[in-house]
């Protein structure tokens, strides 16, 4: 039968082809596949390079042929360079994941118990001046000066490791600040900013911790302060929900209250127009890096003329640094004095 003849022929062709594929694949892997395939990430070129290095090392007469040596690259100048980034060195997503899903973050820190590393973040910097007063005072400069003063005040205790996200007038994107805080394993994070309210001649003091905000003024402010990141407020809805469940944001609230109280009480004495806007929640990107507590304080208001003048005096800036210091210490000391879990109870 014709069809039988064709079928037989077709089967033969098919077998030929299948065999051909098998052989071609063997060729691809150079027959000795076992040996080669195990070398997971090496391209032939890199393999060659490594073999050369290995040969040199052997020729040099050493039995130094061990992994650490191969993992480092010798430059001409003799300094040891870090190896090219391999997948292992790229930021490891699973670290982040572990962080997110780690529900009981630093319970010991909750009450300030293990506060060792304090990170101070001077808002804005470099090309980003933040707000500017009518006399030209820039938020970035005042924030940095206060941050430095706060650092040296805290340094005096000798029991904290105080680090700053920036100590100069440099541009520093928000995501970078977040990474810095994470790298430093900050136990406590304070971001220093200055407010600006064009419509009212008052001096507003307010302190924020991370969370959703329904009020449109706060949303606007968050949008301003987040400007250096590529994220829009819409994207924070999800984060806020997630964080709300995972992190104990109450810790941040406690710190925020403590700072706000100290800032305001003292500010009121100096500036009759000071208003206590209290502690609020806002989705500030920069607060995401530290676990908790992390707060953002609007320590003064550049739109208030009297305040702008005062901010240009060292004494006033030192005072604000002092208030921040007091707020931080109050928070820490309360924790250490053994205020129990009852501080968790809603009380304000």
């Amino acid at each position: 039968m014709i069809s039988a003849f064709f079928r037989k022929k077709e089967l033969k062709v098919r077998q030929e082809i299948l065999k051909g594929i098998y052989e071609e694949n063997l060729r691809i892997i150079g027959k000795k596949k076992g040996a080669l395939l195990r070398q997971r990430t090496f391209s032939p070129n890199r393999l060659l390079l490594i073999l050369c290095i290995a040969a040199i090392v052997v020729l040099a007469g050493g039995n130094y042929l061990d992994a650490p040596l191969l993992a480092e690259k010798q430059t001409a100048g003799g300094t040891v360079m870090r190896p090219l980034p391999s997948s292992a060195e790229l930021p490891n997503p699973s670290d982040f994941k572990a962080f997110i899903t780690n529900a009981d973050v630093s319970v010991s820190r909750t009450f300030g118990l293990g506060v060792k590393t304090i990170m101070i973040d001077a808002g804005h910097g470099g090309v980003d001046s933040g707000t500017r007063g009518k006399m030209g005072t820039a938020e970035k400069d005042i924030a940095l000066d206060i941050a430095k003063r706060l650092k040296s005040r805290l340094d005096k205790y000798g029991r904290f490791h105080v680090v700053m996200t920036r100590s100069e007038d440099v541009t520093l994107p928000l995501n970078k600040r977040v990474e810095l805080a994470r790298e430093a394993k900050a136990d406590l994070f304070v971001s220093i900013h200055l407010n600006y309210l064009p419509s009212k001649p008052i001096n507003i003091i307010e302190t924020y911790y991370f969370g959703p905000s329904a009020d449109s003024k706060t949303q606007e402010l968050a949008e301003q302060e987040n400007a250096g990141s590529q994220y829009g407020l819409g994207e924070f809805k999800e984060i806020i929900e997630k964080l709300g469940q995972k992190l104990k944001l109450q810790e941040s609230r406690e710190l925020a209250y403590s700072i706000q109280k100290n800032l305001f009480v003292n500010m009121e004495k100096e500036n009759g127009n000071a208003y206590n806007f209290g502690v609020k929640r806002a989705p500030f990107v920069v607060l995401l890096g530290a676990e908790v507590p992390a707060v953002l304080a609007e320590v003064s208001c550049l739109s208030n003329r009297q305040e702008e003048k005062q901010l240009n005096t060292e004494a006033h800036r030192e005072n604000i640094a002092h208030d921040l210091e007091a707020g931080i210490l109050d928070y820490i000391n309360k924790g250490e004095a053994g205020y129990g879990a009852d501080r968790y109870a809603e009380k304000r």
Binding site: P93, S94, F96, I100, N175, V178, S229, Y231, V285, L288
Partner: peptide, 16 residues
């Protein structure tokens, strides 16, 4: 797509 940074990871909620 991999999250660009820590914030991005929180935005998208998955490593890849």
């Amino acid at each position: 797509g991999w999250p660009k940074d820590f914030i991005a990871l929180q935005v998208v909620g998955k490593p890849v």
